[in-house]
């Protein structure tokens, strides 16, 4: 903490229209999304859900654009003190912690299913009598034989770790290095290198997403591994899907940072936006390594 005489004044913005638009955008997005899902599931044909959903997405995207522009502008106008920067650092750190807990819920679900439920349904362990419902069911993992095959058609196979997933691991681990090289380039003020390493990182991220899409296609087309193929498909797509969504968000963040780097933003002491994106990227990378070990290697 600074002592009294070195204390800079902390910037408190006056009224802002940004948050109310963000609230409205968020509301329209989820209200439209919810209507859309209900229309889909009930088979009703209506454009209401999709229209509201798209409107919400637009409002949200525009608001975020203006919000971040405003923050960057204020930063360039030297309105932020060192203490303000610390608030951003803490804020981003706690946000990433909340994301960690979000994934923890799905990893926890996988753990519980895999170590207890699959056996218990088959009558193994203390809950012996439960195998009376589906006597033909054999507990195994990955679950290629669902307890109730009429409701959930089991997959013919699952995706092994040593094909595309290994490639994806190499892509993401490499991208963690390239983003760090970009950071070093910022520290040394080497403009061209910042842009170069960022482009490399984004390319690796996009390559990852393409591989993931190919993998999903394989799963659906060749293995019958789908969202409704029982609990293996459920946990597999939930974990890899949300991870993929986070890679997408991370890539968008990096693209924004690339744009800013090309405009000449970021110096050694003033590059929090970049750092936040880089931390997010490393977080996404760590989640992938957990996925690779727990879902692909130990799970198949």
């Amino acid at each position: 903490m600074a002592s009294d005489n070195t204390y800079e004044s902390y910037y408190v913005p006056h009224n802002s229209p940004l948050p109310i638009f963000a609230s409205l955008g968020l509301f329209l997005t989820v209200y439209g999304g919810g209507s859309l899902l209900n229309e889909m599931s009930s088979g009703a044909s209506s454009n209401f859900g999709i229209t509201v959903f798209m409107m919400g997405g637009l409002v949200m995207a525009a608001t975020l654009f203006f919000w971040f522009s405003k923050v960057i502008e204020e930063n360039h106008a030297k309105m932020y003190s060192q203490q303000m920067n610390k608030s951003f650092v803490w804020g981003m750190s706690w946000f990433i912690f909340s994301e960690v807990m979000f994934f923890a819920a799905f990893f926890g679900a996988l753990f519980y299913i895999r170590f207890w439920v699959v056996d218990w349904i088959g009558g193994v362990g203390e809950r012996g009598p439960s195998d009376m419902v589906w006597p033909d069911y054999v507990p195994q993992w990955p679950l290629l034989d669902n307890p109730n095959p009429e409701q959930f058609a089991a997959p013919d196979g699952v995706i092994g770790p040593w094909g595309l997933p290994l490639v994806n691991t190499l892509l993401l681990v490499t991208s963690s290095f390239t983003v760090t090289f970009a950071h070093h380039a910022i520290n040394h003020g080497e403009r061209k290198k910042i842009v170069g390493w960022l482009v490399a990182t984004i390319a690796l991220g996009l390559a990852f997403l393409v591989c993931q899409a190919v993998e999903y296609y394989e799963a659906y087309a060749h293995y019958g591994l789908t969202l409704n193929s029982g609990i293996f498909g459920s946990t597999f797509f939930m974990l890899t899907g949300f991870h993929g969504a986070h890679v997408t968000i991370g890539t968008i963040m990096l693209i924004v940072m690339l744009g800013r780097a090309m405009k000449g933003h970021f110096t050694k002491t003033d590059c929090f936006g970049f750092e936040a994106a880089a931390w997010y990227w490393h977080f996404v990378d760590v989640v992938w390594l957990l996925l690779f070990v727990l879902v692909y290697i130990l799970g198949t």
Binding site: M40, A105, G233, T235
Partner: peptide
């Protein structure tokens, strides 16, 4: 813990609209 709540309602959403089996023993869930 709020993200964990978000996780559990998301699993519900998937079970309701996308046919996953998180909470359905017939597909190996619970």
């Amino acid at each position: 813990v709020m993200p964990v709540l978000a996780g559990v309602v998301t699993m519900m959403l998937m079970d309701i609209h996308f046919g996953t089996a998180f909470f359905n023993a017939g597909g190996g869930g619970d």
